[in-house]
């Protein structure tokens, strides 16, 4: 009875935090200007070709191959960066060793480095006469630069920091007590890692995977130098967009762009749902 007497008459008129109108307004204008309007343009442009034209533009063998390269390469590179990223995060959070801070800073380098510089460096490194490319070819006979493998190497390079940086804080916050509890309950070190540590890292890993994957799919600068860009073999979808633009085929370029957007969005949405399932029950 007392509660109803003191409840505010109109909840909407007495906000505890003022400023909703201003902040929401700024957000909407900003979002509209840099996200929604350009995306809407991207979504509208392809239909100049008509539905059949869009379908034809997208089902060109060269376009499909580029999609396979971009999404397949990004998937492979991000998957490969998951175990490496977790190990790196483990090393910099769990151990104290000389050069730890340097390693810590180096991990962020792909964020800071102009992607073209990274691409050129990787190409020089993995070319058949490069420091790594030469021995790899001598031992295994594989070429890395100017092949799909080169694309994956470049994408691995850009996706890795996302895994490390999302897993690291969770690993740091994982109390030592939890692992000790597992040990007192009879778990071996391997069981502790498999059943206690990795599941605790899973939601963060999925988030990092999503971020790394999204970045890898859209990556352009570091890939085009090492990829060789052979149509049907090592050409990525973003490059194909540039090619179409250079041919003044704006609608086809927009169609490729829109398809990439839809695919990426669908994948990120699925990852997000998965991540939420993994986090179920946890605050």
């Amino acid at each position: 009875m007392g509660a109803s007497a003191i409840a505010p008459r109109s909840a909407s008129r007495h906000q505890a935090l003022p400023g909703l109108g201003l902040t929401l307004g700024v957000t909407v204008v900003w979002l509209g200007a840099i996200v929604i309007v350009p995306l809407a343009a991207l979504a509208l442009k392809p239909w100049e070709l008509g539905a059949a034209g869009v379908l034809a533009a997208l089902s060109e063998p060269r376009v499909l191959a580029a999609f396979r390269m971009s999404f397949g390469g990004a998937l492979a590179a991000t998957l490969a960066s998951v175990p490496v990223g977790i190990l790196l995060a483990w090393a910099i959070t769990r151990y104290r060793f000389p050069g730890r801070r340097v390693l810590d800073a180096l991990i962020d380098l792909p964020f800071a480095l102009p992607t073209a510089v990274a691409g050129l460096a990787l190409t020089a490194l993995f070319a058949t006469n490069g420091w790594l490319g030469a021995p790899i070819e001598a031992v295994t006979g594989w070429k890395v630069a100017y092949t799909p493998a080169g694309v994956i190497v470049a994408l691995f390079f850009v996706a890795l920091p996302f895994i490390v940086r999302t897993v690291e804080p969770v690993l740091r916050d994982l109390p030592a007590e939890t692992e000790e509890a597992a040990a007192t309950l009879g778990a071996t070190r391997l069981q502790t890692i498999r059943r206690v540590v990795l599941p605790a890292l899973a939601p963060a890993t999925v988030t990092g995977f999503g971020l790394g994957f999204a970045r890898a799919v859209g990556e352009y600068g570091s890939v085009i130098f090492i990829a060789g860009n052979m149509p049907m073999v090592s050409e990525i979808a973003p490059l194909l967009i540039i090619v179409k633009l250079e041919q003044f085929n704006y609608a086809a370029a927009a169609a490729v762009g829109l398809a990439m957007l839809v695919l990426s969005f669908a994948i990120l949405l699925l990852l997000n749902l998965w991540q939420r399932r993994l986090r179920r029950g946890q605050r």
């Binding site: 939890t178 000790e180 040990a183 007192t184 605790a200 899973a202």
Partner: peptide, 18 residues
């Protein structure tokens, strides 16, 4: 620890959250 068969209740319980 894992072979001792000693039960431990930790200060902050250390439950497995997942």
């Amino acid at each position: 620890a894992r072979l001792r068969g000693v039960g431990v209740v930790f200060q902050h319980y250390a439950l497995f959250r997942h």
